[in-house]
Design a protein around this nucleic acid. Structure first.
Lengths: 190, 190
DNA sequence: AGCAGCGGAGAACGATCGTTCTTTCATTCC
DNA sequence: GGAATGAAAGAACGATCGTTCTCCGCTGCT
């Protein structure tokens, strides 16, 4: 089977996204990636100049999908209040947490593993977390909440994502949602 | 200089703790560890049978120190209320976050990088997070708060630790403390 | 049909990994 | 003083890393 560059790119990014998330970045060799993607090393290196670039591209590709899911869920029912939109995000979190193979936030894991030694990856992680915060801030502002509330909710979300990976995912999701409700109730309309 | 087994252990654990935290586990080779600790590879392998055992031992050694610091800070002023004791922990967090070289939670980083492929390490991480939760739960119970509150505070703490590593550490600490205050105020004595 | 060029499989590269072995040297015991 | 112990230094091991190269068969053009 002959693949267009576009198809090859998609398969490589898909395999990279999955393997890096499942096993961590450094634990996945380029050979494993070639096997999973079904694209030769020569082709992979023609598409991406290095492994780091591939890590970066895989995280960026994942981001598009994640942000679409977030916005779709928040805006789901047209008639939901901003508070309900925010809580809907926490419900989405629970769905992620209980999915088989959930291993925490791909971005936080990548940053924790590579840190500043992969600056472009670190940049993608920062951008991603900023997108989350902005998405929350829009709803918080619409609900008339104070600006800092979005950051507080973001902390809850990041904490829940890591905690769910190593413990009881339902409990983590429930605690995060309960805390978010408390914060929303008492930080808004005081 | 000739080192006793105890001194050698201490130097190896100290170097391992520092290097693994700074650069990540897989990015640190045993040669770098030997250079940093000033203990020969032969000696290191006589003390610890494998790198994974060393990772585990380093996290356990760090844990003793961390828990002492946590309990010391919480019990600091004898006359503090349970709520104040909890908030004192958030102040300690800020001190960690702004310290040079802060790179997030060593346990979460290790787990994110190694996952279940290093089961003993994963176990240490789970135990550590349970210690945190128990420490919070004692104070929450003393304050008459609901049992779930400790988990909510733990989410805030874990979220703040990861967020501080990649962004503004003071802002992360402040948001976590503010959220904790809200949760403490409104989940207790309802 | 014959030639050019692209992509596939996989070998090969130097480097580095975790781990072990060899050599050497200093100390200690008789 | 000479033999034995034990640790240090570092080479060596096989494996694997990220990356590049070689070879070969397929395809499209004239």
């Amino acid at each position: 089977m002959v693949l267009s560059d576009l198809q090859a790119r998609e398969r490589v990014l898909d395999a990279a996204s999955r393997l890096f998330y499942e096993r961590g970045v450094q634990a996945v060799g380029m050979d494993a990636l070639r096997d999973e993607a079904g694209v030769s090393l020569k082709r992979i290196y023609a598409l991406y100049p290095s492994k780091e670039a591939l890590v970066e591209a895989a995280l960026i590709a994942r981001e598009r999908h994640v942000l679409d899911e977030l916005r779709g869920r928040a805006d789901g029912d047209g008639g939901a209040s901003p508070q309900q939109q925010i809580l809907a995000l926490f419900d989405l979190l629970e769905e992620w947490f209980v999915a088989p193979g959930y291993r925490g936030c791909a971005y936080l894991n990548a940053f924790g593993e590579l840190g500043e030694s992969a600056p472009r990856v670190a940049g993608v992680v920062r951008r991603h977390k900023r997108s989350w915060r902005d998405l929350l801030a829009e709803r918080v502002a619409a609900a008339g909440g104070p600006p800092g509330l979005a950051d507080q909710l973001a902390l809850l979300i990041n904490g829940a994502m890591t905690t769910a990976a190593l413990g009881d995912p339902r409990a983590a999701a429930a605690a995060a949602r309960a805390a978010a409700e408390t914060l929303l109730r008492h930080a808004i309309a005081d």
